[in-house]
Computed example of a mutant assay.
Amino acid sequence: MGRALAEPIEHLLQRRGVSRRPLTWDQRRRLIPYFAADIELLQQVTGEDFSDWLRPRDRSGGLVGARPPGQRQSRNGRPPRG
C-alpha cells in the first residue's frame, strides 16, 4: 500500500523538476565539514560505507540529475530496492 501511494505522489512532486547542477570540488570541499559527523553516524547506523561522500570525485557530482529511463528519483548509484 505504501509504495502504491508513494509513487504517484513522488511523480507529482518531481514532474517539473529540473536536473540539479553538479557541485564543483571547491563547493563540495567547503560543505563536507558540515556533514562529516552525520555521514559517520549514517555509516554506523546502516553498516554501509559512505566514505566516498567525503572524497573528491573525478567528475565531482557529474552524474547528479542524470537518471536511468523510468527512474524518477536519484539513487546515487545504488540499485533499486525490490
Rank of each mutant, 00 (worst) to 15 (best):
Q27V: 15
L5H: 02
R21Y: 05
S19E: 07
M1A: 15
R21S: 13
I39T: 00
L42H: 09
Y34L: 12
E10Y: 04
Q71W: 11
E7L: 15
G2N: 14
R20M: 10
A66G: 12
Q27I: 02
P80M: 03
Q71E: 10
V45E: 10
R15L: 13
G70L: 06
L13W: 06
R28Q: 01
R67H: 07
D38C: 09
E10D: 14
V64T: 12
L63T: 15
T24S: 12
T46H: 10
F35I: 15
P33R: 02
Q43I: 04
F50P: 03
A6D: 07
I9S: 14
E48W: 10
L13N: 05
Q14I: 13
R72K: 12
D26Q: 10
Q43V: 04
G47S: 09
G62L: 10
F50G: 00
G82M: 04
T24M: 12
L12N: 14
V18C: 13
I9M: 07
E10H: 05
P56Y: 02
D26L: 03
R81L: 04
E48L: 14
S60W: 06
L63D: 15
E48R: 08
G61Q: 00
P69I: 01
R21M: 05
R75S: 10
G62P: 01
G61C: 06
R55S: 01
G47L: 09
S74F: 13
V45A: 03
Q27M: 09
P79Q: 11
S51W: 00
Q44M: 05
P79K: 11
R75Q: 03
R3C: 11
N76L: 13
T24D: 03
I9E: 09
A4G: 08
W53R: 02
E40S: 08
E10W: 08
R67A: 04
R75H: 15
H11E: 13
L42M: 09
A4V: 11
E10A: 08
R28M: 12
E40R: 10
A36H: 10
I39F: 00
E7K: 06
E40Q: 15
I32T: 02
G47N: 14
R81K: 13
G62K: 06
A6R: 01
V18G: 13
R3K: 13
L12S: 14
L31N: 00
I9T: 07
